[in-house]
């Protein structure tokens, strides 16, 4: 073995030669077909009779440049709403997940409430929740600033996303093997300590990738708050669209969203893949 190494690389085995050839071939096919498809798109689309008009209305460089600063400014509001919603969603989601598993009979109403909560808020389209809560609760006669659409729109998002996040937390809690609970109990830990120090840390770690996907969805759904007034990026793009009779601002808004969500999605996928590797 050492001898062979000093004499230079080992001769490649028959199998290595075969696998290398396979790999080269599949690379060639993948590269070729990708180039073909994208090349066709780039060459053929501009040949379509309506292309010039489409370009002017959807991919208008001048409109893009004029509206991008305003869109970015409006996107700050999206990011802010997202940022203050996330901690509330995490806390409420976790509480609901825990409430769904309480065994204390005195707390049974809490358990029913948590179950109904997740059923309702997962079952109603987000935009409806935003409308109903955003206009409905302030309509009860709250004074300013407590009737602000920012507050109640956030509440709508937090309630909806907590329902989803709670279910994910719950699946995480259930995925921790019963033997971990038994080991912790056998040490004399109280149930709440078993949950807090043994089950939850493992459960939360396991669902991080799934929760990342919820965050990405939330970042997009923040735009739904525009229905009840806040001028975030989607509404701002709509204003530009109407004033300029041009859809390019929507393309700009989409690009801004993608600039945030694509890296986040890649990161979530990376976390998932890492977790899968660790578990196998």
């Amino acid at each position: 073995m050492t001898e062979a190494r000093t004499r230079g690389p080992l001769p490649r085995t028959r199998r290595q030669i075969y696998e290398d050839r396979l790999r080269r071939r599949s690379l060639l096919i993948a590269g070729g077909s990708t180039a073909l498809v994208f090349g066709a798109l780039f060459l053929l689309i501009p040949l379509a009779p309506g292309w010039e008009k489409v370009q002017r209305v959807f991919f208008n460089g001048e409109v893009f440049a004029r509206t991008l600063p305003g869109l970015l400014e409006a996107f700050v509001l999206d990011v802010a709403i997202f940022a203050w919603s996330v901690p509330m969603i995490a806390v409420l989601g976790l509480l609901v997940a825990l409430a769904r598993d309480v065994s204390n009979p005195a707390l049974y109403p809490l358990r029913i409430f948590a179950t109904v909560f997740t059923d309702v808020f997962r079952g109603v389209p987000v935009v409806l929740t935003v409308y109903l809560i955003g206009f409905g609760i302030p309509g009860l006669g709250l004074p300013r600033p407590w009737n602000s659409p920012y507050i109640w729109g956030t509440v709508a998002l937090v309630l909806t996303y907590s329902a989803y996040v709670a279910e994910i937390f719950r699946s995480g809690i259930e995925s921790v093997h019963a033997s971990q609970r038994a080991a912790a109990q056998s040490l004399g830990l109280r149930d709440k300590d078993v949950m807090r120090y043994v089950i939850l840390p493992q459960a939360i770690r396991r669902v991080v990738p799934a929760q990342m996907n919820m965050l990405i969805a939330l970042q997009k759904d923040v735009a739904l708050l525009s229905f009840i007034g806040p001028v975030e990026i989607f509404r701002q793009a709509g204003v530009y669209k109407s004033l300029m009779a041009n859809f390019t601002p929507y393309v700009g808004a989409a690009l801004i969203f993608l600039a945030v969500t694509v890296p986040a999605t890649r990161y979530a996928d990376y976390l998932l893949a890492k977790q899968r590797r660790q578990r196998s």
Partner: peptide, 13 residues
């Protein structure tokens, strides 16, 4: 009363 299990059941985190 202490107990030790076949599958160790250490807390992995």
């Amino acid at each position: 009363i202490g107990m030790v299990f076949q599958s160790f059941n250490l807390f992995p985190h």
